[in-house]
Simulated assay, not measured.
Amino acid sequence: MGEKGVPNRRYMEEFQEEAARLANSVGYNEAARRLGVPAATIGNWARRRSPGAGAGDVALPGVRQAKPGLSELEAEISRLRKELASAKLDVEILSKATAYFAKGWR
């Protein structure tokens, strides 16, 4: 059993996909009520199956992830902000490495 006496349940992949589709059409809470599954679980399934939720996605601090239903321009802006944050992190790492190695030459 899981926390608070709630049993750990395993759901088939097809059930999860259908539940995620239902949640996107009627909302997480309504889908959870209809299916008898916690709303948080359905939310996790829906987010995992949303477009752009790939395994290679890296969450960067200060960068909001694109939400389903945004226009193409907003999604492009979000992608560019993510790319900019990554580039800034690269520059910061390189500048610190340069400073570190410059100390050794003096």
Score class of each variant (00 low, 15 high):
residue 1 M to C: 09
residue 3 E to A: 15
residue 5 G to S: 14
residue 6 V to S: 10
residue 10 R to S: 10
residue 13 E to M: 08
residue 13 E to G: 01
residue 15 F to G: 00
residue 16 Q to C: 11
residue 17 E to P: 00
residue 19 A to P: 01
residue 23 A to W: 01
residue 24 N to G: 10
residue 27 G to T: 02
residue 27 G to K: 02
residue 28 Y to G: 05
residue 29 N to G: 09
residue 29 N to S: 15
residue 32 A to W: 01
residue 32 A to S: 10
residue 35 L to N: 01
residue 35 L to Q: 01
residue 37 V to K: 02
residue 39 A to P: 03
residue 40 A to W: 02
residue 40 A to M: 09
residue 43 G to P: 02
residue 44 N to E: 06
residue 46 A to W: 02
residue 47 R to D: 01
residue 48 R to H: 05
residue 51 P to Q: 10
residue 51 P to S: 07
residue 52 G to W: 08
residue 54 G to K: 09
residue 54 G to P: 00
residue 56 G to S: 10
residue 56 G to L: 08
residue 60 L to K: 07
residue 62 G to A: 06
residue 64 R to N: 12
residue 65 Q to H: 12
residue 67 K to S: 10
residue 67 K to I: 04
residue 68 P to T: 07
residue 72 E to T: 14
residue 73 L to K: 08
residue 75 A to H: 06
residue 77 I to M: 07
residue 77 I to A: 09
residue 79 R to Q: 11
residue 80 L to F: 03
residue 81 R to M: 06
residue 81 R to V: 08
residue 82 K to Q: 13
residue 83 E to W: 08
residue 84 L to R: 15
residue 84 L to M: 11
residue 86 S to M: 07
residue 91 V to A: 15
residue 93 I to P: 00
residue 95 S to I: 04
residue 95 S to E: 15
residue 96 K to A: 13
residue 98 T to F: 13
residue 98 T to P: 00
residue 100 Y to P: 00
residue 106 R to I: 10
